[in-house]
Every structure is written in structure tokens, then in C-alpha cells.
Simulated scan of single mutants.
Amino acid sequence: MNLIANIGRFLFAIPMVIFGVFHFVNTRSFQNVVPSFIPGQTFWVYLTGAALIAAGISILIKKQIQLVSNLLAIMLLIFAVFVHLPLAIDGDQLAASSLLKDVALAGGAFILGNYFKDK
């Protein structure tokens, strides 16, 4: 089971790092996703990108996995509720897919954090 859990940990963490890098490479695209009622769109894109990279690296090197995974899950749920849900309600199918993806990833992050809490 340890081998499978560690493979899952890598399969979860590596995309987080890549998603974070995307925030820096495609900043303008992500700025358009930040709700207009939130000031400083560029700041939030960079901050969330850095958080995704930091979370992914922390999970990869097994440092503070429970804390990091729980914080990551909360961030993903915030994305789901404030970014994707309003667009999904308006009928945007891509936003609905992103909503479901972020909810699923948040669930995975909670499970990951719980599994590795004592390891």
C-alpha cells in the first residue's frame, strides 16, 4: 500500500506544480478568470500560482503534508465557489467541468493530508 500511496502522492503533487507554473506563464489568461469584484487580479494570479507550486513541492518532499493538503483543499474549494460556480450557473460548460475538477481535487487533497498525517 505504501508504494501505491506514494505513486498517488506524486501523481497529485506534480500537476499542482505545473498548474502553479501555468499561473506565471499565462498570467493574462488567468487574470480574466479572477472575479471583477476582487481588486488586484495579477497579484492573486501570482499568489495562487506560488501557493500551488509550494504545495506541490511540499507534498513531493513530504513536509507538512497534512497542513499543506488541507490548505490546498480550501483554496481549491474557494476557486470552485467564487470562480467556477457563477460561470457554471450561467451555463458555461467549461466552468462546470473546472468546478467539478476543483471539487474532486479538493477531496483528494483532504484524503492525501489525512493519509500522510503521521508519515
Results as ranks from 00 to 15, higher is better:
2 N>F: 15
2 N>G: 14
3 L>V: 10
3 L>A: 15
5 A>P: 03
8 G>L: 12
11 L>A: 15
13 A>Y: 05
13 A>L: 13
14 I>H: 03
15 P>I: 08
15 P>M: 14
17 V>L: 12
18 I>A: 14
20 G>H: 00
22 F>Q: 13
25 V>I: 14
26 N>V: 09
26 N>T: 08
27 T>E: 13
28 R>I: 11
28 R>N: 11
30 F>W: 08
33 V>L: 14
34 V>P: 00
39 P>M: 11
41 Q>M: 05
45 V>M: 05
46 Y>E: 06
46 Y>V: 04
48 T>N: 09
50 A>G: 05
52 L>G: 03
52 L>E: 03
56 G>Q: 02
57 I>L: 09
60 L>H: 01
61 I>R: 01
64 Q>W: 08
64 Q>E: 08
66 Q>A: 13
66 Q>K: 09
68 V>A: 08
70 N>F: 06
71 L>S: 02
72 L>E: 05
73 A>C: 14
75 M>P: 00
77 L>G: 03
79 F>T: 04
80 A>N: 00
82 F>E: 04
83 V>Q: 13
86 P>L: 14
86 P>R: 00
86 P>E: 08
87 L>N: 07
90 D>A: 15
93 Q>W: 14
93 Q>Y: 15
95 A>C: 09
99 L>D: 08
99 L>V: 13
100 L>G: 11
100 L>K: 05
101 K>E: 09
102 D>N: 13
109 A>F: 03
109 A>M: 00
112 L>H: 01
113 G>K: 00
113 G>Y: 02
114 N>E: 14
118 D>E: 14
119 K>Q: 12
119 K>H: 13
